[in-house]
């Protein structure tokens, strides 16, 4: 049974009292996820944040292990982050984005315990969108709608929010501020679409000249992969502290950067910019279906928002095979 929450601020206040709450906060010209000090910092006038909530589950740089060798004995201690946190105000597309990260790190033969530890200790409170942004493509992917992956889902309505519970953790957050209701409203805004039917034929367009002409503009700055909520690639480095101890670190990597495909001996598999840009588009839109059984792109449009030279992968897809 859904609930009606009339006073969001009062709810946020109770949340902040007991949890570390991370939510979109207004910067000069954009919104970014920040730890809330007070409920007054939160305003529901954002479309979405410029960068995704990814960094709270997979930080830009983190220590994974503390290793040491003392008196011939080798040991490695995993450094798991168990801080309890609430991600508040997550947009539906980003709930899908976190589901993609879960697929990458938590299923299959290898579970990433570092991601798992953060993820398990993160409560997700999602809020449906009333309007879409300039580069929102959720309509193309159906990602404006979420059925799982959240602890609470809020739908803005005239007299407050309809709240759906998605987990036991979510249930625990229901307090006297919530009243039961049988209302079943949702907010599904209209957003952009592209010629999605072409995705099925992506194989055919692999050698399309458009990849080359579009990539001429590309600065290889990696803003697109950093801003993408489902780009999860990382690199590992061992950093010595002294001859006996050190940290194993991981840091985000990006297929748009040179050393991503560099192997021992200096050979680089994707040197040309167009191959890198094409790889990004194919991984997000096509190959991930074979790789993970889902499409990595959730249509959030952040790669377009952040690209300084206005490269738009959906616009490229629209034009594939047309010249």
């Amino acid at each position: 049974m859904p609930y009606l929450l009339r006073d969001l601020k009062a709810f946020l206040k109770t949340l902040i009292k007991e949890h570390i709450v991370i939510a979109p906060v207004k910067e000069k010209n954009h919104y970014d996820y920040k730890v809330l000090e007070s409920e007054d910092e939160f305003h529901l006038d954002y479309v979405n944040t410029l960068y995704p909530p990814k960094k709270f589950l997979l930080p830009y740089e983190e220590n994974l292990l503390l290793f040491s060798k003392r008196d011939g004995e080798f040991s490695a201690k995993p450094l798991l982050n168990k801080t309890k946190r609430v991600l508040f105000g997550v947009r539906p597309c980003d709930v899908h984005g976190i589901a993609v990260m879960d697929r990458v790190f938590l299923s299959g033969n290898y579970v990433d315990s570092f991601y798992e530890s953060r993820r398990k200790n993160t409560i997700i409170i999602a809020i449906e969108c009333e309007k879409a942004g300039e580069n929102c493509y959720c309509e193309s992917f159906g990602t404006y709608k979420v059925e799982s992956g959240y602890d609470l889902l809020l739908t803005p309505v005239d007299d407050g929010f309809i709240v759906r519970v998605g987990s036991d953790e979510g249930k625990k957050l229901i307090n006297e501020l919530f009243e039961e209701t049988d209302r079943d409203e949702h907010k599904y805004p209209k957003s952009k679409t592209f010629k999605k039917e072409k995705l099925a034929k992506m194989e055919k367009y692999f050698h399309d000249e458009l990849w080359k002409t579009e990539a001429e503009k590309c600065l290889s700055c990696a803003a697109c992969t950093i801003a993408c909520p489902t780009c999860t690639c990382f690199t590992i480095e061992d950093e010595v502290q002294d001859p006996e101890t050190g940290y194993r670190k991981r840091r985000w990597a990006s297929c748009q950067l040179k050393d991503f495909t560099e192997v021992a001996g200096g050979m680089t598999f994707r040197k040309e910019t167009y191959k890198k840009l094409r790889h990004f588009a194919y991984h997000k839109l096509y190959w991930s279906i074979k790789q993970y059984g889902l499409r990595m792109c959730i249509g959030c449009g952040r790669c377009i928002d952040t690209c300084p030279v206005n490269i738009n992968i959906f616009d490229i897809v629209n034009r594939l095979g047309e010249e």
Binding site: L219, C221, A223, I226
Partner: peptide, 10 residues
Amino acid sequence: EEPVCVECRA
């Protein structure tokens, strides 16, 4: 050997 943009965006 990566651009400043990486840290800037992060």
